[in-house]
């Protein structure tokens, strides 16, 4: 390949501009007399704004109406159950170490005999908390989970009066039991 090295500033300017023929000069016509009157421009602008009154409004009446989210939307977390209604989480802690914001804490416990219908694995999360004020909803916990036990749903974090209310425990996060509460389960599961 041949190198082209210009010898002075003018030449370099010319060469730089001719490096490609892809440059596209933009339209910049000078202002004419009508332009400089300014009043037509004001009226034209007003007419555009006025015209938008008759268009379909792009807004929705929240909170009576809510907009649809895509199935991959990263909203509030859900702790998942398997088809028999057992908690999938085995408290391995991978979601907590994967979390860039360090929003997840958990305490593990051993499953006792007779609890097989509650927990899928021999170890489970006795306490599982996500601090929704720390959470950045990046979804890395969902990617990290080897048990498909946590995923981000299509719902928003609701408002709250106290900071404490944003620390979500298991009762806030767990999906309803598909065996005992099939309707609530279907609703919480959404389109996923």
């Amino acid at each position: 390949m041949q190198t082209l090295i210009p010898h002075n500033a003018d030449e370099s300017r010319r060469m730089m501009q001719s490096l490609t023929n892809r440059a596209k000069p933009v339209d910049r016509r000078p202002m004419n007399f009508v332009d400089r009157l300014y009043l037509p421009a004001v009226l034209k602008g007003m007419s555009i704004t006025f015209g938008h009154i008759f268009k379909k409004p792009p807004t929705i009446k929240y909170p009576e109406q809510t907009r649809e989210f895509s199935p991959v939307f990263r909203g509030l977390h859900v702790l998942n159950r398997d088809e028999e209604g057992r908690e999938r989480c085995t408290a391995c802690g991978l979601c907590a170490v994967a979390c860039p914001a360090e929003a997840i804490t958990m305490e593990a416990a051993e499953r006792e005999p007779g609890e097989e219908n509650l927990y899928r694995e021999e170890k489970y999360a006795a306490r599982y908390e996500i601090n929704m004020l720390r959470c950045i909803f990046c979804g890395l916990c969902e990617e990290a989970c080897p048990k498909d036990a946590i995923y981000l749903s299509e719902t928003f974090a609701p408002s709250n009066f106290a900071r404490k209310g944003f620390i979500y425990g298991k009762k806030d996060l767990l999906i309803p039991n598909p065996v005992t509460q099939p309707e609530e389960y279907a609703k919480a599961k959404g389109k996923r």
């Binding site: 490609t20 892809r22 440059a23 596209k24 933009v26």
Partner: peptide, 21 residues
């Protein structure tokens, strides 16, 4: 396949038209 929009004067207006293009 795309072009690089350029303008000449380097004023606020030119920066605007470059972005629009």
């Amino acid at each position: 396949d795309f072009e690089i929009p350029t303008a000449q004067n380097g004023d606020c207006f030119d920066r605007a038209v470059v972005r629009v293009e």
